[in-house]
Design a protein around this nucleic acid. Sequence first.
RNA 1: GCCGGAGUGGCGGAAUGGUAGACGCGCACGACUCAAAAUCGUGUAUCGAAAGGUGUGAGAGUUCAAGUCUCUCCUCCGGCACCA
Length: 785
Amino acid sequence: MTPKKYDHGKIEKKWQKEWASKKTYETSDSSDKPKFYILDMFPYPSGEGLHVGHPKGYIATDIVARMKRMQGFNVLHPMGFDAFGLPAENYAIKTKTNPSIAVAKNVARYKKQLEILGFDYDWSREVNTTDPKFYKWTQWIFLKLLEKGLAYESYEPINWCPSCKTGLANEDVEDGKCERCGTPVEKKPMRQWVLRITDYADRLLADLDKLEWPESIKESQRNWIGRSEGAELDFAIKGRAEKLTVFTTRPDTLFGVTYVVVAPEHAFVTELLKHKETLKNRDEVIKYVAQARVMTQIERTDAQKDKTGVKLDGIFAINPANGEEVPVYVADYVLAEYGTGAVMAVPKHDERDAAFSEKFNLPVLDRPFIDRTAVEKAGGKWVVKYKLKDWVFSRQRYWGEPFPVLHDGDKIVPVPEKDLPVELPKVKSYEPTGTGESPLADIKKWVNVNANDLHWTKGEKRPTEARMLKRETNTMPQWAGSSWYYLRYMDPKNNKALVDGAKEKYWNQVDFYVGGAEHATRHLIYARFWHKFLYDIGVVTTLEPFKKLQSVGLIMGEDGRKMSKRFGNVVNPDEIVGTFGADTMRVYEMFMGPFDQAISWNTNGMIGTRRFLERVWKLAERVDTKGQLSKETETLLHKTIKKISEDMAVLKHNTAVSSLMILSNAFEKEAVLPKAEFESFLKLLAPLAPHITEEIWRNLGNKKSIHISEWPVADESKLVDATVTIMVQVNGKVRGSFTAGKDATKEELEKIALGLDEVKKWVGDKTPDKIIVVPGKLVSLVVKL
RNA sequence: GCCGGAGUGGCGGAAUGGUAGACGCGCACGACUCAAAAUCGUGUAUCGAAAGGUGUGAGAGUUCAAGUCUCUCCUCCGGCACCA
């Protein structure tokens, strides 16, 4: 017999222990079953621990994983930790302890918090990006990128955060500010490692079409990649050997060009300034260029600000279409990084050129468009440009993967594969230097490497005779490990390869990936890039890492603001689980609303789901081995099986919960509750509330876990109600209804409808002009009144 | 400015073009109780005494029938943005 009281604390602990000891959720690599790989974006284990918003996505995938397992799939649902990066490092600076200590502590805490929620993770596959056994392969991928010419050193000015004292990728800058700390970024020329993601721009764009991802995320990536088609045109410079190549998406407006503008950083300007005599207003130009250089990105790219610029006095560009001579300006509204850094100005057709022309009193020419042939005749070359920039991949900080690279004077020497991983050494001070060097540069013992100590193989024969080499002291950005971690879960302990070929083939790609939409143009682009690269070098056999993606809507605080310690609106899951139980919290978070939508937490709302589970608990006491359900409820059960199976697969857990409530309400009204049918209900509820269902299931005499039982299948013959309500409309308004057999013919329905008193009242003695009968649904009469 | 998504009771939200507001919260009344909590039951868009009317951001349209489809507009959220 079921014990009287529903004691969630006892029940949840009991089954969590049993599932762990029986390895209920361990995934096998070889199986006749079809595979299903479902993945959560792994968390960054901060010192704050989890708040109730974090597990929302994990609960949702846990539900799908459990359902799929019961449906006979070999399910891979792993979890791990992304632990390199600034928060751990800043904490280390503050406490002067190695970040690995804090990371270990935080990971332990996260795991504990996740465990009490009853997730079905296979912890034997846990990964941690800061584990040398893991980052050995992050470094290995970098070596391959280097080998294929996709990683290179660059000295171009990059985004620099003066507060974090590190260079940043374009993707780490939001509205001209450091994404981490909000400090306006500066441009700083410095040596850095860059990955040639732009080589993959076209594929990253084109392959979006075949992904089952939310349209909004695909669109964000399209915007980020920013493809535009246009032409490059050469403008000769009067009396000089150079020419200016401009990029335009509107080469047809070539006749309307009134001037040419170049970015302050353009090589042509630099060249002109080298010689004193070329420019009449040299001092003015020097001043303008210098001003542009010290501006932050925010100041520079503020579209609201007035156009500024300086004429390159005495310089004229020649329009390749008609030979017209036009002046040349240098202005900061032209960006050096995009296109060719030079633009042909057509004020008639471009707002910015129009604004500039007005300010500088330049003419506006309204001239006919030219056709494609004329463009080509003028020397136009059709090109495609992308806004996407190469990925600035080095950071001047301590807590990241060391680059597996050595410097031999000017030469780059890859660390031999045998010497991977290059382990991050312990340092005395984690403080960033701010000089463009990382704290690693201070550790002479680590930096200086005797070439004879390395394991050169034939293929990697040491390319230098020098005995002492210097290690690269920059580290990789936080995004490195997360760009490929999903592959490691397939084969987490392999020390011979990143992933075994057969295992990769079996697990293929992630079938379903769930996480925050804020990763749209960072993690989700980087991972796609690396995956395509790994495909190109034969490590993976799929073109895309994540087949289907769903984003989680945030859970906001009760005050509607983002949950944060700063606002004091953080709700701790441990407390909620203590009071209401993990099952109640799981059901509540899924029931709150549509999964991808942001929603405010409301602890009171938990009462409803707790009541629901209490009622299920009581229902179990009424289970009978004899008897049967009413026809009506039997049909409802089969409809519910069908609906839940569909809803859960696409994370519509809110409506799944609702239909389970409806079914349990119907069960309560039944005179007898047959065991088989109640067990079907339990199985449907099991993914949502794994503990209480397991307890009831075992109390009903089942020996094996409900979570490895078979998922119910709806009986087609029991899906249709024996009788249906047919409603009757007169001129589009509902005037009555009646019940009829499910197989009643159109003629029968029409006859009954016309005979109804409430219908006669509206139709009178007139003959309907039109009668529409939808069997099983309605009769609609059209009568001229 | 360009692109994507969304606007439904007091609240969270349901609704293959076919009875709008499922399910839950809250609220009201009732039962149980000395009383309260918990629990259970009934009710709960709105105007109207009723018959009936009106209602899914606003306005038009298509249709026997529109929350759902089409067009125009408004508001909110998200992405991109001096990107030529």
